[in-house]
Write a protein that binds this DNA or RNA. Structure first.
Length: 587
RNA sequence: AGGGGCGUCGUCAAGCGGUAAGACACAUGGUUUUGGUCCAUGCAUUCGGGGGUUCGAAUCCUCCCGCCCCUGCCA
């Protein structure tokens, strides 16, 4: 009887293995199978509130909250790792909570490591009493010198053999404020010859007279990450403590602390590779630099890989979550192509974004045979495949704007938009034919004179004749003027961290990463669109409302992402050819 | 006396001794009132390299090579 049960228990796992469980979920599945935690799965997302969250954190959020959501008894806490008051601020805790919620996740419990300061202190006392921690009077420089190097062992601190009584007295006086900042630290007594440098008597507590954003001036000593993190996990009953690869060496200390103190449980630390994304940077240090040097307009600049930046850019949380699913979780250093993120954004927006028309670089078109001063309203669907989105009425008249790049006086092969004598369709409206090109004194095209075919109303010719292109347009008289901001990759290099000698990652900032277009013409249905409104400008890309100028009512759009563009590819492939021919000729 | 990790398509990534999933990218066709979407097709004779074990190796053993992390009173 036991055997069939066993088979039944393992078969769902086999199914999930076919779906490709990542190595962390595999570990958790095995733990559940063995009953290690009684079916409980407790994770946590533990940011330090010293900066804004970015897409790399999104990966961790999706992992930790995602795993919790996959299990009946799964929980995920949000815990602020706020042990360094000199770097942290409430501004960051607020933004972090907002970002996690926006990502679509809710935490079971909200905690601050600083809430555990008293308990942590008691655990430190335990270590001291057991002779496993000591107060060290060495200066930071001396500690470094005593630590040894990668290849040579360190040497013991002269204070290493103080008695537990003396250490306890000193530690209490550290807390009481009897000593200068930096004059003493509490250290774990482990092994100054340990090949893992983390274990060479690591610092557990330092004296720091700094105002903490939560505990105020109550504490003068603050615990270090390695001491705090494992114990916070244990206090919360975390089962699987998931972190990034650079903490792999720290795991030995994580385990040492929990093994040498009366911790309520011993969570398992598991490390995965952090996300690297092409054409951007994801290190907090570098992001701060971009903000502080004014190279971008703050943390939520739409070019930033921060969650707040991506949100303002118009990237939907669904797309971010899909992206995190697709990139997988492993231990190998990798660089994910930004194209995958953009694909996920398009994939979601394609389904949900209403289609409207906006002309970014307007070129005036006069329909010479359209009744002077007249106009009409066309009923146009908002989505090509989702009729539930309904439609809006779009005004048409004898003076229109089309996209400047949709006209070429002397078109190359494969250009099938508008050019002299050619007929195209105006989306949902009429076929028009270009009869005349009007230029200014500099020879620049300023207006097109076209005729329309009244029989093609709605966009179909009763005689069955075809056109090769459909253009977007906007009625000049009815159009709203608006500002559109076009974004491209922040960096020209795939990996901006890979710098040539004498250069800095900021040298690779893309000068075209932001282009502001001030005289765009959008259809009148957009007049009342508010911040966050998201749509597709047909043929141009996905856009969202950034803000509305309170004085003028001017609507400002951000381009979220372009549409895939085959014409652009054709153009690119046509351009390099003459160069190749030249080279061949030279040879 | 160094230690800890990691090497599978351009980029991610499955695979866990039985003869290389999938996704993005790229390419080519088809459909189309968005050069969008959608659909179809192609895209690693080979898994960092050399030996070995085996009927059989990306998977096991062995040596070598390469990359990442660690010498904060940061996290």
């Amino acid at each position: 009887m036991a055997k069939p049960d066993h088979t039944q228990n393992t078969s769902p796992d086999d199914e999930s293995k076919e779906k490709g469980l990542d190595f962390i979920r595999t570990i958790i599945a095995k733990d559940n199978e063995s009953g290690k935690h009684g079916g409980k799965v407790a994770t946590r997302f533990p940011p330090e509130p010293n900066g804004y969250l970015h897409i790399g954190h999104a990966k961790s959020i999706c992992l930790n909250f995602g795993i919790a959501g996959e299990h009946e008894k799964g929980t995920c806490n949000l815990r602020f790792d706020d042990t360094n008051p000199t770097k942290e601020d409430v501004e960051y805790v607020d933004s972090i909570m907002e970002d996690v919620r926006w990502m679509g996740f809710g935490w079971n419990e909200l905690h601050y490591a600083s809430d555990y300061f008293e308990q942590l202190y008691e655990f430190a006392v335990e270590l001291i009493k057991a002779g496993k921690a000591y107060v060290c009077d060495l200066s930071p420089e001396e500690i470094r010198a005593y630590r040894g190097t990668l290849k040579e062992p360190g040497k013991n601190s002269p204070y290493r053999d103080r008695t537990p009584e003396e250490n306890l007295d000193l530690f209490q006086r550290m807390r009481a404020g009897e000593f200068e900042d930096g004059s003493r630290v509490l250290r774990a007594k482990i092994d100054m010859a340990a090949p893992n440098l983390i274990l060479r008597d690591p610092t557990l507590y330092r004296i720091r007279r700094a105002h903490h954003h939560r505990t105020g001036d109550k504490w003068l000593i603050y615990p270090m990450y390695d001491f705090t993190h494992c114990l916070s996990d244990a206090i919360e009953g975390i089962t699987h403590s998931i972190c990034t690869l650079e903490f792999e060496n720290n795991r030995a200390l994580y385990d040492w602390v929990l093994d040498n103190v009366s911790a309520p449980c011993h969570p398992q630390q598991i490390e995965f590779a952090r996300l690297n994304l092409s054409h951007t940077v994801l290190s907090k240090r570098k992001l701060i630099q971009l903000v502080e040097k004014g190279l971008v307009n703050g943390w939520s600049d739409p070019r930033m890989p921060t969650i707040s930046g991506l949100r303002r850019r118009g990237y939907p949380p669904e797309a971010l979550r899909n992206f995190c699913d697709r990139i997988g979780v492993a231990k190998r250093d990798s660089m994910v192509d930004m194209a995958l993120l953009e694909f996920c954004v398009r994939e979601h927006l394609n389904e949900v974004a209403p289609r409207v028309m906006g002309v970014l670089n307007p070129l005036k078109v006069v329909i010479t045979n359209y009744p002077e001063g007249e106009s009409e309203e066309l009923d146009c669907p908002l989505h090509p495949t989702d009729p539930s989105q309904g439609s809006r009425m779009l005004p048409f008249s004898g003076e229109l704007y089309i996209e400047r790049e949709d006209f070429m006086e002397d078109p190359p092969k494969k250009f099938f938009r508008l050019s002299p004598g050619k007929e195209v369709r105006l989306r949902y409206a009429y076929f028009i034919t270009c009869q005349e090109v009007i230029k200014d004194e500099n020879g620049e095209v300023v207006e097109l004179r076209c005729t329309y075919d009244p029989a093609t109303k709605g966009g179909d010719a009763p005689d069955g004749r075809k056109v090769k292109a459909t253009l977007h347009w906007v009625s000049a008289r009815h159009a709203c003027t608006s500002e559109v901001r076009l974004y491209e990759h922040l960096f020209t290099q795939e990996n901006p961290n890979d710098v040539e000698e004498g250069k800095d990652f900021t040298d690779y900032i893309n000068p075209d990463s932001l282009k502001v277009l001030k005289d765009c013409k959008v259809e009148p249905s957009l007049a009342n669109a508010g911040p966050g409104y998201q749509c597709q400008f047909e043929r141009m890309g996905y856009f969202c409302v950034d803000s509305v100028d309170p004085d003028t009512g001017l609507v400002i759009f951000n381009r979220t992402v372009t549409l895939r563009d085959q014409w652009a590819k054709i153009q690119k492939s046509q351009q390099p050819q003459p160069k190749k021919n030249n080279k061949k000729k030279k040879k």
